[in-house]
Computed example of a mutant assay.
Amino acid sequence: MTATDPRADLRLCLQSARDALLWKLEGLSEYDVRRPLTPTGTNLLGLVKHAAGVELGYLGEVFGRPSGEPLPWLEDGAEPHADMWATAEESRERIVELYRRAWAHADATIDALPPDTVGRVPWWPDGEDEVTLHRAVVRVLADTQRHAGHADILRELLDGSVGMRKDDVGVPPGDPAWWEAHRDRLERAAREADRNA
């Protein structure tokens, strides 16, 4: 068994989640990448915009490595949840490129600093605002994976596309009729369980 570099492992998992999040935008119209699909407004492009800000914050600013990227939606006085959706003027290309620059900046921080480097999270309460780089990377990884899961569901609702990557969907094969029968079976099981409760 060979030893692995923990930072390389974290970066590999983080990059996989980043790639999955961006793949969910491919082939969709401007409307579909922006449209709110939940009562709270969750949308694909907003998830990417949010993820960019998370990386620039936790893996940049927190460790004294500001990126210089303007993020007006995170400034004091900005509209609540402005990082979770894109205005009509904010292009998909602009947000995707921001996200790519954010992850390059985050990766540079991961490479430059030892994992036990302590940073300060200015948006956490005083006295509870210190975090190691290792813990910050784990937090960003968890956040990105969580939002990639949200994106999985949103994309499936939009056009039926599923999976982490185009070449690895991670679900058993089945034609539309098989999936419809499978879903119907689950619906029947849920109703039966509800009746038996």
Rank of each mutant, 00 (worst) to 15 (best):
A193L: 12
V54R: 02
R195C: 02
D19I: 04
L141S: 09
D111A: 15
D143H: 15
N43P: 08
D152C: 08
R183C: 12
E89F: 03
L44G: 01
E75C: 08
P39T: 09
R35P: 02
L25S: 12
D111C: 06
R65G: 05
L59C: 10
D175L: 05
P176S: 07
L59S: 08
I110N: 01
G46R: 01
R183E: 15
R120C: 14
P114A: 15
P173Y: 09
Q145K: 00
D111P: 02
V96T: 12
T87A: 14
T87H: 08
T144I: 08
V138M: 13
A148D: 05
W103Y: 04
D152Y: 01
A189K: 09
E97W: 03
K166Y: 08
D83E: 15
T87F: 01
D159Y: 13
L12F: 13
W179R: 15
P39N: 07
D19W: 00
G119H: 09
R101P: 06
G174S: 11
E30H: 02
G53H: 10
V48E: 04
D143I: 01
A106E: 08
K49I: 10
V137F: 06
E61K: 07
A108F: 00
D126W: 04
R195S: 11
R7Q: 14
M1A: 15
G149P: 12
W124C: 07
A82C: 08
R120A: 14
H105C: 12
H147D: 10
I110F: 11
D168G: 10
D107C: 06
D129Y: 04
L37E: 08
E61R: 14
V48A: 10
G57I: 04
G163S: 14
R155C: 05
L10T: 09
D168N: 13
S91P: 07
A78L: 11
R135P: 03
V137R: 07
T109I: 05
G170T: 12
P66M: 06
R101M: 04
G127V: 06
H81S: 12
T87I: 00
G149I: 03
H147S: 07
D111K: 10
P115C: 01
V96S: 12
R165F: 15
D32A: 11
R139T: 13
T109C: 14
I153V: 14
V48P: 08
T2S: 10
E130P: 04
P39C: 06
D83F: 06
L21G: 05
R7C: 06
P176G: 09
D129T: 05
E180K: 14
W73T: 03
R165Y: 15
G41W: 11
R11A: 15
A189G: 13
V33L: 08
V138D: 06
V48G: 07
L45K: 06
R101A: 10
V140S: 12
L14F: 11
W179S: 06
L44H: 03
M1T: 11
D5Q: 09
R35K: 09
D19C: 01
D175Q: 03
K49P: 14
K166M: 14
W124I: 00
M1W: 04
E61C: 02
L59Q: 07
T38M: 03
M1N: 02
L56W: 09
V33F: 05
D111T: 10
S67D: 02
R65I: 07
T40E: 11
D129R: 01
N43R: 03
V33C: 13
D126S: 11
L186S: 00
R11I: 10
E187D: 10
W73G: 00
